[in-house]
Design a protein around this nucleic acid. Structure first.
Lengths: 137, 137
DNA sequence: TTTCATACCGAAAAATTATTCGGTACCTGA
DNA sequence: TCAGGTACCGAATAATTTTTCGGTATGAAA
């Protein structure tokens, strides 16, 4: 496991919040689950811009932080289901807020980005932050 | 300048929002300015957990995104002042929301972190995310 | 016994972000 | 001219996060 060299101040709310759901694919996963996806295989199928491994890692972090609960249904085929806890649900309005702000103000960001990258087409490339389908529309 | 290898989807609000104010020291800088600090030298004095260079870099990004406006008063000594634009002000309630969530739920994060790092004291270390003094109180 | 679908994980590599170091330039007063 | 305060910036390095690759395990059915 990676061990931080520089410690974090876990009494700062923003640090805490970003630690819990401020990672590239977490908003995307939380969003997909809030829309009904439950099983890892569903999520893998639905979120195709990253590898299953990435999703698995973030899922287990979200479980550790009690944003998701995990239920194992033994049998065949093995079935695992994730769902939002109450704590997880409480993140949704904040994500919506962030998304709303971003949608409203994306033009300025695009403008700045265009000033910098005068090259490349964006087709088929991957992103630092994950597009969150329903939230992002 | 660093050139991204993986492009971002700037139509996703969350991606945009995180690009604008989701960086280690930006909430801290925005917060300090909202509380009255204006000049770079003041910010350097007030935010001591990182180097002046870091603050300068983030300031100019925030100006590019029109979160801050920059006024140069020629004369001696040279005086530069940054202040929040209307767009910048619109971030404050979102930061407050993030902070509120984090404060309310920091215990679970601490618990998880303790399970992992059974070592090190936190004294004098630096953080991935910056403590935001008034917001974080 | 092999195969297939499920779910998961370790470790290295790549990408990105943050930090440090050592500068420049401007203006003024000593 | 030199020192001292202000504001800024390039480039190398370090730290962190994300991605890729190649596995393990379980149970059932062919």
């Amino acid at each position: 496991m990676y061990e931080r060299k520089i410690q974090e101040d876990l009494d700062c709310g923003i640090i805490v919040a970003m630690k819990v759901f401020g990672a590239k694919w977490k908003p995307c996963i939380i969003d997909a689950i809030s829309r009904g996806a439950k099983r890892p295989s569903e999520l893998h199928r639905e979120i195709t811009n990253t590898s299953p491994r990435v999703i698995d890692m973030q899922l287990s972090e979200l479980v550790a932080y009690e944003i998701l609960s995990k239920t194992i249904h033994p049998g065949f085929p093995l079935c695992v289901e994730y769902s939002l806890t109450e704590l997880g649900e409480s993140i949704l309005p904040i994500l919506a807020r962030l998304n709303e702000w971003g949608i409203k103000n994306k033009e300025i960001v695009k403008k700045v980005s265009n000033q910098q990258n005068v090259n490349e087409d964006l087709t088929d490339k991957k992103n630092k932050w994950s597009t969150v389908s329903s939230v992002c529309q």
